[in-house]
Design a binder for these strands. Structure first.
Lengths: 221, 221
DNA sequence: TGACAATTTATACGACTGTTCAGATAGTTT
DNA sequence: AAACTATCTGAACAGTCGTATAAATTGTCA
């Protein structure tokens, strides 16, 4: 007695139901990332996925729910990667250095954003769009906040004398800088003069910048 | 022989034409800032402004042009304020210190974003929305880039040994951090634990963070 | 095989979209 | 006064929007 469908056989082979569901969510992911939520119609998603209109509603529910479904599909991959890197640092013995913490938090996301698979790039782009918008953050921020809080806690242990609120603000500015490398590529490429390469090309500069910023804030009077 | 209309008298008194135009642009500014471009309909703008539908098209042109018209209306106020502060620093004698440059660039924008007049707050919010979106930046980035370039030049003089591209990237990350204080207030307040005050409340932390970041980047090997 | 459930199709609904425009109104000029 | 131009109104246009649903199709299981 499965709660979802009888279409998943006992050997785990995926039938048409799950497959088209993935196609729909992939299409929604790409279009939401490229154009934003309001500029993307359900009909366009259906066309991009190669299905008819009703299928999108059948698999994705209402449009409002669709965007959260898309995010939830991959959120665990990003979270567990960040958690794993944090666990590695802790397993190494003494409390992790600030630089390693910044690196461990930023790099997994930049890797997704620079990956060959356009679907993962779209996911990273969508995160940047959604998380930095106050209209969406209340609905989806809870997906990523817990891990950020773990890192914040580790950073507070690395800088015990720093004011907690200041350190937390520094982390949010770090996240904003990270997201901007994915969402504001035109602006960054335009002003920095580089050809717009992948976000990964800016990794070293980003880490240096954010680490310097956090370090400065955690030494403030 | 005026190019716009015969409704502007020789003594400069503004008649109904210009006044309603302002009302329309004000309404568009508020709604675009609060909901974004795609989620805002022309009819909603008309209702908010207290005019009929056709008036919006008459004064604002096509919807695409409307957003640029809204931004252009106030762009000179922000640019000249930043230019004036830069000129002051230069008039003081020796090349400006990095900290003063960062302060001079960030503060005028934060002041607008924290001002009592909700119209200026909306303008600041709209900038944050538009400039950090690759879909809009090509159309409006040119309004703000020249001043940013002047500051970049001054920063390069303050740090002659820094790699130019790295310094430019650090400035774009600074801008991203600044904009996030206005566009991502929910996220920042949520993670930093503060009650969401005005962006100005974060000014000191922001300046410390960005200055530390730029400083670190400009010392990189 | 037939009964059953999951999935897909095709279509329709009412509401809303951006844009256009003929005609009404108001203020200025001659 | 009349002529003229800028501004505003109200309505219409052809699409697109999100959502719902009856009917057709597909695969599974008894």
């Amino acid at each position: 007695m499965t709660d979802k469908a009888a279409s998943t056989q006992t050997d785990g082979r995926i039938l048409r139901g799950e497959a088209t569901r993935e196609r729909v969510l992939d299409a929604a992911e790409r279009l939401f990332a490229a154009q934003g939520f309001d500029a993307t119609s359900i009909r366009r998603i259906a066309a991009e996925a190669g299905v008819t209109l009703g299928v999108v509603g059948f698999h994705g529910g209402a449009k409002q729910d669709l965007i959260r479904t898309v995010l939830e599909r991959r959120v665990e991959a990003l979270n567990s990667k960040r958690r794993a890197r944090l666990a590695e640092l802790r397993a190494a013995g003494s409390p992790p250095a600030l630089r390693d913490l910044v690196d461990a938090y930023l790099t997994p996301y930049l890797e997704y954003a620079s990956q060959g698979d356009p679907q993962w790039r779209a996911y990273a782009r969508l995160i940047a769009r959604i998380v930095s918008d106050d209209r969406w953050y209340p609905a989806v921020g809870g997906l990523y906040d817990p891990v950020a809080r773990e890192y914040l806690h580790a950073m507070q242990q690395a800088r015990p004398d720093a004011a907690q609120q200041e350190l937390a603000t520094a982390l949010t500015l770090t996240v904003a800088s990270m997201l901007s490398l994915v969402a504001s590529r035109a602006r960054i490429a335009g002003l920095s003069g580089r050809d717009a390469g992948s976000p990964m090309d800016y990794r070293d500069t980003l880490i240096t910048f954010c680490l310097g910023g956090i370090d400065a804030v955690s030494r403030a009077p």
